[in-house]
Design a protein around this nucleic acid. Structure first.
Lengths: 158, 158
DNA sequence: TGTTTCCCTAGTAAACCGATAGGAAAACTA
DNA sequence: TAGTTTTCCTATCGGTTTACTAGGGAAACA
């Protein structure tokens, strides 16, 4: 009995996506300071600084120091998928017991678990890999995704 | 920079499913001892005991003590979804920053993140909610799931 | 020169993960 | 009734991760 986590998206990944969305929403070659993003999204700013560092090292963001400095996206917002950001912030999208599905091996009646995890991962990848920062920032999700989110049953708890 | 987890299925959930599959694979009203399941699936047996306790409290398994005792499924294997087991062992299937998607609130350009997480969750639910223990134990996954798992690209790493 | 902003390293409290230990309580067997 | 088996319960544990905070150094610009 635990009542917490299953497949979870960490605070770090969530913050990373939100920061990137803030950058995506600003006119093209302008840049935002970490403090501004932190205030806009309610993210602890020193924590965010570390996350922006990850995004920079991951090649998703470029930075500039000094008075007129800040961060901006390294590529157009419609070429950066949500999956790209999560992977840079958090590592592999889906893992089972710490390892990526293809490395697993099951025996006996559990043999078909592997293709099942693979299918789950493929599905998550499909959604998070096709939705871009531009899609979310402009509130124009792909139809297929919009459709899933419109089903009222998708919003119910258990 | 981390190289580890993203959306993960814990060891506990993985073990729980495998134990349930072992129970599903045995002729109907027979029961298996924890030690036998542990040996068959290579799970630390004291750890497994705790997990089986969770499954019992969750109403998925019934137990019997003493000489001819052991565990068996509380319902037919084709009425127990993989999602049922993961939820009993690990809590909610999908969470963001520890909370379930409907409880989140986003502002500004992040507003459409909520429907995105909802869509991801709906998709995971769909797969893990429709695949039953019987499906996996007999290696007969629903066609749609089978299809996803057959795409060679689903098996590649990044 | 001085200010601003990013950048880097360390630390930390709390939770969680994956286990292990030891025994009490049933159920069955002889 | 005694003895065996197995589940059941509680407690503990080392290591890792999570979500932060602190403090200062290094660019860029005025």
């Amino acid at each position: 009995m635990t009542d917490n986590r299953g497949m979870r998206i960490s605070a770090k990944a969530d913050y990373a996506v939100r920061a990137a969305l803030e950058l995506a929403s600003v006119s093209d070659d302008a840049s935002l300071k970490a403090e501004v993003i932190a205030a806009a999204q309610g993210i602890p700013h020193k924590f965010l600084e570390g996350i922006l560092g990850d995004l920079r090292r991951g090649g998703l963001v470029v930075s500039q120091r000094g008075g007129k400095g800040g961060y901006r996206l390294a590529r157009p917002a419609d070429t950066i998928a949500i999956a790209d950001i999560i992977r840079v912030a958090d590592g592999p999208l889906v893992s089972v017991r710490g390892v990526r599905p293809p490395e697993l091996s099951y025996v006996g009646p559990a043999e078909s678990l592997l293709p099942l995890w693979i299918a789950v991962r493929a599905n998550v990848r499909k959604i998070l890999g096709e939705v871009t920062l531009a899609d979310v920032a402009t509130a124009k999700l792909p139809e297929e995704v919009q459709g899933l989110a419109e089903d009222p049953e998708a919003w119910t708890n258990p």
